[in-house]
Amino acid sequence: MTRTEAPEEVPEIRSPSSRVIVIGASVVVVLLLGAVLGMFLTQRALSGGEQATPTAGSVDVGFAQDMSTHHTQAVTMANWERDHTADPELRQLAFDIQSTQLEQIGRMKGWLMLWNQPEQAVGANMAWMQQPAGHDGMAMGGTQAAGNGALMPGMATNDELTKLRTLSGKDLDVYFLQLMLRHHQGGAGMAQYAHDHASVTAVRTLAQSMLVSQGAEMDLMRQMLTARGAQPLPS
């Protein structure tokens, strides 16, 4: 009697479209986790006797709106670097930035939902950082408030993002480090102002976390640029 042979196992082949779906699902999960955490922490703070829910134009609302937008560009650049670099060190840095800032975006959007505020600011960016009238429109700490359509500090222009996508190899890695370092530097002033002036404890805590984690990342990016014989972009 002939012994029946077991059929050979066919290895699973994951198509590029499947990979995109997996990545997209992961992004949604991170955003949702951040949103749930943000709403939980804020509800707990408000129930603990903190002041009334932040309103439009407040530091808390403005920071959550503008920093979410600022973070979104960082995530976009980090995703591109992660998927196109051949350097494991750069791939890990890009992954860390992408995952951390996605969770923070989710947390800030959760706050805005809880406060019944739009996800994006109406009017000029960073108006929440402006000093009272008579100070030449300068924000606290010497940062110029961005007008309608103007880029917030550190953000890359469309031309710079286009250039990033045309590069490869060491040129890509260096330009990514330069753009991301400048991006972090620009966001630091916003985080510091929120840390010093926000009314909700959870907002101040998140701002402090950004200052610490991004400060460490800036030090690392400077070291990486030096190791590759490159310099940071002008602030």
Results as ranks from 00 to 15, higher is better:
101 Q>P: 04
32 L>T: 12
84 H>L: 07
44 R>N: 11
106 G>K: 07
195 H>D: 09
56 A>K: 08
106 G>M: 12
32 L>F: 11
52 A>G: 15
187 G>T: 02
38 G>S: 04
58 S>C: 07
52 A>F: 01
118 P>K: 04
3 R>Q: 12
7 P>T: 13
22 V>I: 13
33 L>Q: 15
175 Y>S: 03
56 A>T: 07
197 H>Y: 11
40 F>Y: 14
215 G>C: 05
56 A>G: 07
206 L>P: 07
43 Q>G: 15
45 A>W: 10
138 M>P: 02
51 Q>W: 03
81 E>D: 06
92 Q>K: 11
189 G>H: 01
178 Q>I: 02
87 D>V: 10
176 F>T: 06
98 Q>F: 08
44 R>A: 12
116 N>L: 13
223 Q>S: 15
162 T>H: 11
176 F>A: 05
25 A>Y: 06
157 T>R: 03
220 L>P: 00
186 G>Q: 03
65 Q>D: 08
187 G>S: 01
137 G>Y: 09
118 P>C: 05
201 T>Y: 07
51 Q>G: 11
124 A>W: 03
161 L>I: 10
138 M>W: 11
228 R>L: 00
4 T>Y: 14
169 G>R: 10
39 M>L: 12
189 G>V: 04
77 M>A: 04
219 D>P: 00
207 A>V: 08
93 L>Y: 01
226 T>Y: 10
110 G>F: 02
13 I>T: 11
232 P>R: 07
41 L>C: 08
155 M>D: 06
121 A>N: 12
97 I>S: 04
128 W>M: 00
216 A>L: 14
24 G>K: 10
187 G>H: 02
155 M>W: 03
33 L>K: 12
195 H>Q: 14
180 M>P: 06
27 V>E: 05
24 G>Q: 13
45 A>R: 10
229 G>D: 15
34 G>F: 01
102 L>Y: 04
117 Q>R: 13
28 V>Q: 13
148 N>W: 00
156 A>K: 01
111 W>I: 00
225 L>N: 03
196 D>T: 03
126 M>T: 13
132 P>A: 10
194 A>Y: 02
181 L>C: 01
40 F>K: 10
223 Q>V: 07
17 S>H: 09
116 N>V: 12
67 M>R: 02
197 H>W: 03
56 A>I: 05
221 M>H: 02
92 Q>D: 12
130 Q>G: 10
1 M>V: 08
210 M>P: 00
128 W>P: 04
119 E>H: 13
202 A>E: 08
28 V>A: 15
218 M>Q: 15
163 K>S: 08
18 S>N: 04
153 P>V: 03
171 D>H: 05
62 G>S: 06
134 G>H: 01
83 D>R: 12
98 Q>V: 00
168 S>Q: 15
78 A>D: 04
80 W>A: 09
226 T>F: 08
228 R>K: 13
115 W>F: 12
234 P>T: 09
153 P>S: 00
161 L>D: 09
135 H>V: 01
135 H>F: 13
58 S>H: 04
198 A>G: 03
221 M>L: 01
209 S>T: 14
127 A>C: 01
21 I>T: 13
45 A>I: 03
209 S>K: 11
147 G>I: 02
28 V>K: 10
57 G>C: 08
125 N>R: 12
221 M>T: 01
165 R>F: 08
152 M>P: 00
197 H>N: 14
7 P>F: 15
